[in-house]
Design a protein around this nucleic acid. Structure first.
Lengths: 209, 209
DNA sequence: CAAAGTTAAACAAACGTTTAATTAAAATCA
DNA sequence: TGATTTTAATTAAACGTTTGTTTAACTTTG
């Protein structure tokens, strides 16, 4: 689906509001008002509120696939380096599109929109397969342990990042960093998250201390 | 707030539906129909849909506080044993009240109901304080590392469990355990989660391999 | 002038809540 | 205990809003 400027403007407004109030908690009038367009434009451009949500999903997910799979094929990197890059890749993606990931959590929690759920699931399955291959490669090379639960490991990465993103205000308070500029804090948070998860993964994957 | 039999029946129906469809995605008529009562009973008993949600929160959270804090004071346990018990405690709680935890994720994601959000935050803060004390104790006794990010560590526990609970059907498919009875699978999942998180925590907390 | 974009108004359906009438249960009194 | 009154529980119907979507008239663009 090709999107013109106005469509993207509407979608991004919707994205913000969905993240703040949930899909059902946001009316098409709210979206239209905040985007500065007439209510009818949403039906005109997307057909329905539901289909606009699907367009948002397509816009955000469509661009991701390629980078991950090309990363895996890079022969100059060790398995552990690849895993670490996947971690940073994931952190960046979530922190850069926080609104979208909040929405996705809601969509997955409530089994509402089947089209999106199915698409999200297929993305997850492909990711798991890619990582599984990567782990097998590491095991063959003798740098990774034999028994590794890939899904639980992925859940730890995804869960830790989501949980941290959702409660970052609280993290900031707890560490008394309210006076720090927003951008600086986000960088700090990403760096700490990266180190934290890489430590965890190293403990799961390798035999080192 | 004292709850009679019928009120609890309504609340538990609401809990299930909220988890399936979200708060705004569930109408009071849906709840009333499924609970087998008249629509007006919800306003009659709770005042409003919003206040019913708060009653649900009170019902589920009210009972938890005591166990954790008494566990901490137990002098016969080592710091690592206490941490491990907190992990199992958390896994049990989430897996036993899956619907409620799904709802809570939605409530925290969308900053809608301020009363619940405030209460949930205060629970989280107290938990973090308790764990921080526990970590300090372990550090004093020389069994834990010096620099530990308690919040990130907690986020890993909470995030991993949430993520695993939400996608357990998918985990089941991936590991080809669809033929396993539900109860058996849940036990298996809890055991694996427990081992997984304890391994992670050991890597964060101690200097051992 | 035809196509696409934009608008205010109207649409029926669904929403949370309230009302007023009725039934069931509990409390009071003879 | 049995009749009577008071309170609580339950109901169907109606309330006014808000919901997502559509219409038909109008404006802008190519």
């Amino acid at each position: 689906m090709e999107l013109n400027e106005k469509q993207i403007q509407i979608i991004e407004t919707a994205e913000r509001l969905f993240a703040e109030r949930g899909f059902d908690g946001t009316s098409v009038r709210d979206i239209a008002d905040e985007a500065g367009v007439n209510v009818a434009m949403i039906s005109y451009y997307f057909g329905s509120k539901e289909k606009m949500m699907e367009a948002l999903f397509e816009l955000r997910v469509g661009s991701v696939k390629i980078r991950v799979e090309s990363l895996i094929k890079d022969e100059s990197l060790s398995p552990l380096e690849k895993v670490n890059m996947l971690i940073d890749e994931h952190i960046d993606r979530v922190m850069q599109k926080q609104c979208f990931h909040k929405i996705m959590m809601g969509v997955v929690a409530t089994n509402k929109n089947p089209a999106i759920l199915k698409a999200a699931n297929s993305v997850k399955i492909r990711n798991a397969e890619v990582v599984t291959e990567l782990i097998k490669d590491g095991q063959k090379k003798g740098v990774f342990k034999k028994k590794i639960d890939v899904i639980l490991m992925m859940n730890t990465m995804v869960g830790t990042v989501s949980q941290t993103m959702m409660s970052q205000t609280y993290y900031r308070e707890f560490n008394k960093q309210q006076d720090m500029p927003d951008e600086e804090f986000e960088l700090l948070l990403k760096r700490r998250l990266s180190i934290h998860i890489k430590t965890l993964f190293k403990a799961i994957l390798t035999n080192e201390a």
